[in-house]
Design a protein around this nucleic acid. Sequence first.
RNA 1: GCCGGGAUGGCGAAACUGGCAGACGCAGCGGACUUAAAAUCCGCAGGACCGAAAGGUCUGUGGGGGUUCAAGUCCCCCUCCCGGCACCA
Length: 875
Amino acid sequence: MADSKSEGPNTKPQSSAQTEVANGGVASRADRYDPQAIEQKWSERWAQNPDLYRAEPPTSSRKKYYVLEMLPYPSGALHMGHVRNYAIGDALARYMWMQGHNVLHPMGWDAFGLPAENAAIQNQTPPRQWTLHNIASMKAQMKRLGFAYDWSKELATCLPEYYRWNQWFFLKFFEQGLAYRKKSKVNWCPECATVLANEQVLPNGCCWRHENTPVEQRELEQWFLRTTKYADELLQGLDTLQGWPEKVRTMQRNWIGRSEGTLVDFKLDGAAGPAGDTISVFTTRVDTIYGATSLQLAPEHPLVADLIANDPGLLAKVEDLMAEQRKAKEVGDIGAIEKHGVSTERYALNPFNGEQVPIWVANYVLLDYGTGAIMSVPAHDERDYEFAKKYGLDIRVVILPRRDGDERRETDEPVLPFTEMDSLVMNSGEYSGLPCQEAIVKMSKFAEAQGFGKATVTYRLKDWGISRQRYWGTPIPMIYCPDCGIVPVPEKDLPVLLPEKVQFMPLVIAGVVAGGSPLSRVPEFVNVNCPKCGGPARRETDTMDTFVDSSWYFYRYTDPSLDSKPLDSDTVGYWFPIDQYIGGVEHAILHLIYSRFWTKVMRDMGLVKNSEPADRLFTQGMVIKGGAKMSKSLGNVVSPDDMVARYGADSTRMYTLFASPPDRDLDWQDAGVEGISRFLSRVYRLVTENTPTQNNQPELPVANKRGPAARNLQRELHKTIKRISDDFKGRWHFNTSIAALMELTNLFSGMSSDIADGNVPMEDVAEVKRSLVLMLAPFAPYLTHELWEMLGETADLLRAPWPQYDAALAKEEEVEIAIQVNGKIRSRIVVPADAEEAQVRELALADDKVKAALAGKEVVKVLVVKGRLVNIAVK
RNA sequence: GCCGGGAUGGCGAAACUGGCAGACGCAGCGGACUUAAAAUCCGCAGGACCGAAAGGUCUGUGGGGGUUCAAGUCCCCCUCCCGGCACCA
């Protein structure tokens, strides 16, 4: 994504076409496949007909089909990953058109984001100009590749016609309490004077643009969207998404991280400070609370400051723990660091038995999960056990393995740490003897009744922080008034427009870098009258996370120029849910969870009826080269423009489908494109040669009954139709679809003498040609349009019906059967396809080679698999 | 550590429900066409061995066991590669 360099495509006109055309009389059309000439011709034709791929309105009598590919960030140029993604979607869209569907196949631009600002700083180009220029380049690339989009639905998220609806949604969210403001920690680079995304913090904890500047954690007021309100529904909805890859659903489940447990308040023993006298812990195993021999607080837990306030030595140690944690988090291996801790020399009281429990601070306790404090039960938790061993804390066993039928004996000491849930509680007062599950329920109820706790559910999923201290994003439509407080911009004043004249370089005043978004330095933008009281007020200067843009763009596609509302519910009701969404698995979590969240909010607002955005999701594999992801630093990037210039768009996109199944990684090999190009040349030659009109075979000797050659061709044609149709309906293994077309082509090409001799009816030849062109149409649009026209067809190829499979014609008359003796092939025989088992068995046993192999052996068993093989087991 | 995906010729891969391993393509070799080359067309091609040849024998889907008349495919154990998550209390 963060691809700031690179200008648009630079496709040189590569024409060998002139030479072909120049010497041509009427009859001598180019006899060689010339992709550049063909593709140029059809590009021009398609350009003259902008409504070609336009979806019909909901009144259409056709069945709707919405195929969507993830929209690109306009970095400047498409890469091979895009080509693959869009080639898959385009093949599907074209197939669906040929199936007679009303297809919606839109494209747009995820056009806000930091690279545009970087470009502004580096090249003095305004972000808007840079972005629109890139969009123009990439759109030209897409057109050159021949993708069939309904461009009347195009949108760019950086334009006010789009982002005003982000703002509108934000106001609605705010009204419903789904948008709120709170303090939160952010990555802050003091040199850039802005917040960084986690991905922009280098492994060494420094800024990506200032490699020697450590990133700081700052507390800032941020806007959040309440995704956690939908946590349970987001989780449960995953079960309904049968058309999504299990992998993605698992990742989302883990991300949401639902965990049932109990909150328990421990009271501080002794004097309390400003942070209060209660330490709340979250545990999934409250049944082990009688085994709690310490409390462990996260180093940044608010109470820690109180507890160590009078002890500078302790303070230093706690700061070390914080540093350790922060560093490990930045490097990404928190979980690997060695457990450290320090005792605060203070105590809390276990509310269940009144026991004094020492309070420690430990580096393995995380502030942002649960309550940031845990009860430590060394006997029954691996981490607590490791920690207690290290610091010599008490280890008290309070659950025991359950034994079938047996009386439990107190001497049955389990191996520690012992964590089995199917156990019995002991040494726990009135709860002793209960199964763990039961104890958890009873103890949680008791805690609630006594007012020191309750059963609860926590999530790993956090509310979505959307504030960004950046320019190139959607302004958050809020105003801060000294008298009225936070005041939303009235709906009628939307959109809040991004100002054009902005200084991006951080300001340095008296040696200190000024903070805040570049917007905060635009007085015309900041200074505003309060909508409530009319007095002077300030605008919010943060912008929205770009994931907001991509959370609902696919709804806007249904009517992107609508200016009275974000979408028309009836139109959306017609098109949704998306029938097929296609994109990279790297968006499995963020984008796809946010989109699901947004859909549910919209549904609750009454805007849409569906609860999930997409019925089916397909995640394609990466394009790699030499076993590694393509990257500039490795120098293994293959440019689509180069490939198109050399082999044409058809070959380039078709290769991305042929080289491996679309759900797997694709190892790029230039020579492979050449193979496809050769194949298309063969098709071109075969279809243009021997066209029925050219061949003056008059009466055919085989008018009604086809000879073996003709039957063979007919049979293979229908087998191919079935293979390809099945692939579109099922696994999408286009690599085998294309292989099937190659096989048919090879067979057809090998039959030229049969055709010349009149052994194949001309109508069959014509049917094979037509079918070949039709079945190739989803993969190679330019060539197939050209050939379709050459075959004398005038109707639109995309409206031509897909070839029909006829099982009777695909049926084999004879089949070859392998004969095995003890699993090893000894012979092969040809039998009628419908031969009975007994008959095949006779023939097999009568075969000379088989007899030889059976000589002197005793036949134990003869197994016949119809149409496939015979296996004779001998002793 | 946990959860996915994967390992098949020189290379990308195919074999969808257990049934002839290697379809299709790339690279390679041989031949035709050509003054020559390119392009194109035809043919060969997992490996080892036997044979002048036709043909034959053995072996082979990361490794080891198992189930089965039959295993790339099913079961158990192990190795390596890729992706995701990770002191989640």
